[in-house]
Design a protein around this nucleic acid. Structure first.
Lengths: 256, 256
DNA sequence: GCGGGGCGCATTGTATACAATCCAGGCGTC
DNA sequence: GACGCCTGGATTGTATACAATGCGCCCCGC
């Protein structure tokens, strides 16, 4: 699951031109190389991406389906603009779906041994030093592993696919802002709570408490969601989050 | 080569070639013109769809994203095969998401007048004659209107988009099998219950009972889901449901 | 001066030609 | 006889040429 969580320079070693162009273009959009609402002309992208129109067109189509671009009625695409509320909703939907994964995992658990990977994730989080800034990235990786394993235990390919289609629109703020943008003292508190949530979810699945697992996973995502608002306050820092440039900053909009 | 067999029955009036090809190909896949697992070669589709490789390729990419096809590691695509469990899960996910729409509609309701369209849907259902087979199609239309309005009241573009991405994989069995495949007497009972669900959901939204609205919408989708299994028993009738040919039937009529 | 129509450019949509890659079959050798 | 390499065909991936369509600007007429 290498879903664009970070502006990884993984765009270089793609097998096909198309894949490379898709990754590059996505990176450019998330980095803010274009203004929201700006129309993307194929021919202007051809020299910047180093490929012909065919892969570029394919990439545009792909990103439009991901939701980063929106098709124009007269043809072509433009950069989509998001309100903070859109990201808020994306995280909510993601939480709902991950909650469903947790519930199905509980309902469909057959062998307690299947929980070993989740438990390993908990131990891995435990070992992290929350005062160490470098461990934040490691936490993100562990969290992704946890969610991925949750999807596997849910035993529903369609659910996993649906989750993936939403994750791209959360702009990685959900995970990175859980720990990344807090003060060191607050960060260690948040880390503790996050660990507790992970443990509780595993416990709920183990005892086949589907509703409890679902609610926990939902509420966990809302922790990230609340942090989004706070992270958005610190505009200087927020600029570095991938995709932040696509978000229209309201002047005085409080929560909805 | 019989030109008369063009699949342009319902996809005749498309603006662009690509749209027409996408619609035609989707229709062909759902109708069962290909066997599950069969590889789709672009060049074999070109004469059948009456367009060059470019739109055909675009259409293949699109259907793959919709989940009807799956990409092969060596390139190209093949018809995806579904288990009954996959459809079951798709309806579950759809129910979860529509439940979320109902909950958000309740949480975000500002003006009671916004419920007028939902109430109109209830009245429309009320007027239907459940013994009239033609009214079944009308019920499906009203149900779609209801869900569409629910999405509008949820005020979340991302949620609506996510729902749309799943609806395609429910193969219309969720709605049509609610009423379509039952005996007349049973059908009128089911119609009554469906009406009650719609009313209850509106009532819950009106009183801002988010959780109740969510649970009701979920359980309503499960009614359709249960009927799916029963509908699948009647294999003769089930063959006519679009997409049924993509579903791998379990050997015999064993399962419960 | 203002409005409408037409012309031209820019851009997307479509078709096709070319390149690379994968798979299968056969032949040769060990 | 079996294994492995090599070659040929088929198929996808990529580039580019061509067509069509929409958009804006300018000019002409009122």
């Amino acid at each position: 699951m290498d879903d664009a969580s970070f502006p990884t320079a993984g765009a270089a070693d793609a097998t096909s031109q198309t894949e490379r162009v898709i990754a590059s273009l996505r990176e450019m959009v998330l980095r803010g190389d274009f203004r929201p609402g700006e129309r993307l002309a194929e021919l202007t992208l051809v020299p910047r991406l180093g490929a012909s129109r065919t892969p570029v067109r394919l990439a545009l189509d792909r990103l439009a389906h991901e939701g980063l671009l929106e098709p124009l009625p007269s043809g072509g695409f433009r950069i989509r603009e998001f309100a903070i509320a859109d990201i808020w909703d994306a995280i909510e939907v993601r939480g709902v779906l991950e909650g469903t994964a947790a519930r199905l995992a509980a309902e469909r658990l057959t062998d307690a041994d299947d929980l070993s990977r989740l438990q390993q994730c908990c131990r891995d989080i435990e070992r992290l030093d929350s005062s160490n800034a470098a461990d934040v990235a490691r936490y993100v990786e562990i969290h992704d592993r946890f969610q991925e394993e949750l999807g596997r235990l849910a035993k529903s390919d369609i659910l996993v696919r649906t989750i993936e289609s939403v994750v791209g629109l959360t702009f990685a703020v959900s995970v990175s802002s859980v720990l990344g943008d807090a003060e060191s003292s607050e960060r260690s508190q948040t880390a503790l709570i996050a660990l507790e949530y992970h443990r509780a979810i595993v416990d709920a699945i183990e005892h086949r408490q589907g509703t409890r697992a679902e609610d926990l996973a939902r509420e966990y995502s809302r922790m990230a969601r609340r942090n989004l608002v706070r992270a958005a306050q610190d505009k200087e820092r927020f600029r570095h989050v991938p995709g932040a440039s696509l978000i229209r900053m309201p002047a005085g909009h409080s929560s909805r």
